[in-house]
Amino acid sequence: MYFDTIIAGFGGQGVLLMGNVLAYAAMQAGKQVTYMPVYGVEMRGGTANCTVVVSDRPVGSPIIHEPVTAVVMNRPSAEKFGPMVKKKGQVFVNASLVKQGQFETRAKRVSWVPTLELANEVGNSRLANMVMLGAVVQGSGVLTVQQLAEALTGALDPRYHKMIPANVQALEAGASFVSEQKAA
């Protein structure tokens, strides 16, 4: 089993947290995993990205140039990482901020996830990142939503633990969206 992804967006969209939760869940699932944050100086407002590699075998390179999966939370990220994804790979696009035709990709599969709308349904627009993460695991099959939910306690700072139920709801909302699209 091998999976890798570049998760990218604006600083403040919580893309590093997405990577952290994914990596933590992979560890708890007994996988080999690396998480590599982008090397940037901006704390907020700039672009941020991280790479997560999950494998049954020890991970060699934590840096990926042709990812299996890209998760693009804004237009600049879509433009930068969309074209890098492998042909057989998959792009998860934040449909709330990126429109059709705004980026190129060779990837056969592109999932458009209206993260803001789904997050608002859960009751907090800031949970858009967790909505997307739910969609990613459901769409790629790398882990289950249940495994992500179980990782939240370890991956989140204790002061955010009261937000865990809402985070789980957001993960489920994203996963359901992808399932329904598949079914449709």
Partner: peptide, 10 residues
């Protein structure tokens, strides 16, 4: 190096 220091792994 910077990579070995910044990487997160189990």
């Amino acid at each position: 190096d910077a990579l070995i220091g910044q990487i997160k792994e189990p």
